[in-house]
Amino acid sequence: MELVTPGFGLIFWQLVTFLIVLFLLTKFAWKPIMNALRERETSIEHALSAAEKAKLEMQGLKAENEKLLAEARMERDKILKEASDAGNAIVESAKNKANEEGARMIAQAREAIENEKRAALAEVKNLAAALSVDIAERILRKELSDPQAQQALAQDYIREVTLN
C-alpha cells in the first residue's frame, strides 16, 4: 500500500520541477530545435526543387543546343555547296572565256597571216613587175644598142604584126 500512495512532497517537487523543465526546455531547446529542423527541411526541399528545375533547364538548353548545332551543320553544308557551285561556275566560265579568247586569237592570227600573205604577194608582184620592166629595159637597151639589131627587131615586130 505504501508503494501506491503518492507522497505529497514528491508530487510537489515533481509538479514544480516538471513545469520549470517544460518551460525552459520549450523556450531554449524545443523551439530552436524544431525551427532549425523545419528550416533545414524547407531548405532541402527548395534545393531539391531547384535542382529539378535546373535539370529541366539543362535539358531545354541541350535540346536548343542540338537544334542550333543541326542548323549550323545545315548552314555549313549549304555554304559548302554554294562555294563548290560558285567554284565550278568560275572554272566553267574561265574555261569558256579561255576557249573564246583562244578562238579569237587564232582568228586574229589567221587574219594577220592572210594580210601579211596578201601584202607579201603584192610586194612580190610589184617586185616581179619592176624586175620584168627592168630586165626588159636592160634587154632592150642591150639589144638595141646595135642599129642592125634595132632593125631586126623592128622587122620582127612588123612581121609579127603582119602575121597577126
Binding site: L10, W13, F28, I33
Partner: peptide
C-alpha cells in the same frame, strides 16, 4: 505538517533535470 523534503527521488530528479538541460541546451 507538510513534508517537502529533498528526498532521494527529488534529488535524482534534479540530476535528471540537470542532464536534460545540459543535453538539450547544448543540442539547441
Amino acid at each position: 505538517l507538510y513534508d517537502i523534503s529533498i528526498t532521494k527521488n527529488v534529488a535524482s530528479m534534479f540530476v535528471s533535470v540537470a542532464l536534460l538541460f545540459f543535453v538539450f541546451f547544448s543540442i539547441a
